[in-house]
């Protein structure tokens, strides 16, 4: 049973990998960016667990800045993905402009909240 499960899992990951390698490069860049953000967020959570949550606003803004960046990047990825039929009529340029605006707001708020 366990054997078959792990074999299934192997198959699955192989299939996943092959499917994923088919994605366009610009989406892969976004994915990389998302991974980077999530990783930074995790590091901060670990750091908080060790040091304690004293400057809580700084912690919050640090983590939320990472999570926010990741979420926004995912949104962008959804919108610029050509396979996604929902956003056919949304130009990638428009999507990117929205993304930039959103990020500006996010980082402004973060700057405000950090200190």
């Amino acid at each position: 049973m366990a054997r078959s499960t792990s074999k299934d899992a192997q198959d699955l990951f192989r299939a996943l990998w092959s499917a994923y390698s088919a994605t366009p490069t610009n989406l892969k860049i976004i994915d990389l960016y998302v991974m980077y953000a999530v990783f930074t967020a995790l590091i901060q959570v670990v750091y908080m667990a060790m040091v304690g949550s004293f400057p809580f606003n700084s912690f919050l803004s640090g983590v939320l800045s990472c999570v926010g960046t990741a979420v926004l990047a995912v949104c962008l990825r959804i919108q610029v993905n050509k396979e996604n039929k929902e956003f056919k009529d949304l130009a990638p340029e428009r999507a990117f402009a929205d993304f930039v605006l959103c990020n500006l707001v996010l980082h402004l708020v973060i700057m405000n909240f950090l200190g």
């Binding site: 004293f54 400057p55 983590v63 800045s65 950090l114």
Partner: peptide
């Protein structure tokens, strides 16, 4: 000082 990592992350 304890918050520098957060600043860095942001």
């Amino acid at each position: 000082p304890a918050a520098y990592p957060y600043y860095g992350a942001a």
